[in-house]
Amino acid sequence: MTAAKTILEVEGLHKSFGDNTILKGVSLTLKEGEIKVLIGPSGGGKSTLLQCINCLVTPESGTISLHGNTVNLENKKELYQLRQRVGMIFQEFNLFDHLTALENVTIALRKVKNFSKVSAEKRARLELEQVGLGDKTDLYPAQLSGGQKQRVAIARTLAMDPEVLLLDEPTSALDPELVGEVIAVIKALAAKGMTMIMATHQISLISGLAQNVLFMENGVIAEQGSPKELLGAGKQTRTQGFCDRLSDLGEGGS
């Protein structure tokens, strides 16, 4: 990977809820195939940042650019385009409760991308097989385990062919024994060169996958660097201290 090109560029994002300023000017650049991991204490604004990047929450100021083109956040068409190209995986999965696993994947293909029923189903089956759920296509969310739900959510997002994936603590709503299956899927994606920003407390994902760690606190990126720089033995960084505390809580394994 030489001189990978920049896909996503975020400049000076500000966001507050009432008097409570959550993001105080966050900027970041994401190159093709790069994986950034967001960590930091609860309430630091990680989820808000990810939600601002695909405009589920509208930032008060700041710009978002895809391939160098700044998205006009006032323009609905451009917004919908941005969201198709920047996929989002939620902590609580947010599968559509009234649809089967297969329909959860096909509905966006059909309604947003105007696929025919047949080609949408073909694509959906393929994506579900990729995440190991080829035999669960006709089950409803209520009939799936947490790990399976998250994998359907991943399949649903990937079916839209996003260029960037935002993951907001994809494993933290899962029982410990189900974390592994979701991590395996994320690692497979990483191996295929998917560009990602992921908020996580999962040590194995931080040290194993991240090319870049962003430590977020009080609405700003307080530290950033490669896992080696921030987490290497003897480094006295805040990231290091934070991760030590995570390990103490016994979250280390996967």
Binding site: L56, R83, G87, M88, N94, L95, F96, K111, V112, T157
Partner: peptide
């Protein structure tokens, strides 16, 4: 979350309300 799930896939507000 149901609303967000759809929005994040590029559904318009109307499509979200109508289909989800």
């Amino acid at each position: 979350g149901q609303y967000w799930g759809a929005q994040a896939l590029g559904f318009s507000s109307f499509q979200t309300v109508f289909w989800i």
